Simulated scan of single mutants.
Amino acid sequence: MIWSDHNLGGWGWFGMTASMVVIWALVITMVVWLTRTLSDRDHPRRVAPPPHRQTPEQLLAERFARGEINEDEYLRRLAVLRRPPPPKGADPHAHGHPST
């Protein structure tokens, strides 16, 4: 029987050291991943709020403020925007005027 006295030589020590580094890196990676996964359940990721969309009335007011439309046109279009929607099935172009 040959007794090697556990003499691994240079490559043996390198292999053991490299494998221990890989094992510890995997253990640490798994702990970090598990911690992040479990903490994300308690605190959902923050999603950026949707961009602020202006209402049609705000856009109309801006056009009036820039001088793109005059006061009469502003008031006429504002009245159209504030008009209640027609009932379902009604002709949207009738505007409540009797046809002649």
Rank of each mutant, 00 (worst) to 15 (best):
D40V: 08
W13I: 06
R63A: 13
L60I: 05
V22G: 12
D5Y: 05
G9T: 01
R82D: 05
R76Q: 15
D40T: 11
D5E: 11
R76E: 15
P50M: 08
P44S: 01
L75V: 07
V32T: 06
K88Q: 09
P98M: 14
F14S: 10
P86F: 02
S39N: 08
I23S: 06
P87F: 02
P56E: 11
R83T: 15
V27E: 12
A18M: 09
G15T: 11
A48I: 11
A79C: 04
G9L: 01
V21F: 13
R36I: 10
M20E: 09
A94D: 12
H43N: 07
A94E: 13
G15K: 11
Q54V: 03
S19V: 06
E71L: 10
A79F: 05
R77A: 07
T29P: 01
M1T: 03
M30Q: 05
Q58E: 15
L75G: 00
N70E: 11
I23M: 07
V32N: 05
H95D: 14
D42M: 09
P50Q: 11
P50K: 07
V32W: 07
P84R: 15
M20L: 15
M30V: 07
V31W: 11
E73S: 08
M30E: 00
T17C: 01
L59Q: 06
L26W: 06
T100C: 08
T29H: 11
E62G: 07
E73T: 08
L38Y: 07
P56W: 02
E71M: 01
V47W: 04
I69D: 04
G15P: 00
Q58L: 02
H93Y: 08
S39M: 05
I23H: 00
P84H: 12
I23T: 10
L8I: 04
R77G: 02
G96N: 10
L75S: 04
R36K: 14
V32Q: 06
D40R: 15
V31E: 12
I69N: 04
W11R: 02
H93W: 03
P85I: 02
D72Y: 05
L78Q: 08
P92G: 02
M20P: 01
H95V: 04
A65N: 15
R41M: 01
T17K: 02
A25H: 03
P84D: 15
T37N: 05
H93I: 00
I23Q: 03
E71Y: 00
P85R: 13
L78W: 06
M30N: 02
H52A: 14
L38N: 09
I23E: 03
A65Q: 15
A79N: 12
H95C: 06
E68M: 11
P85L: 13
P86Q: 02
A25E: 04
D72A: 12
M30L: 09
A94H: 08
H95P: 00
A61C: 00
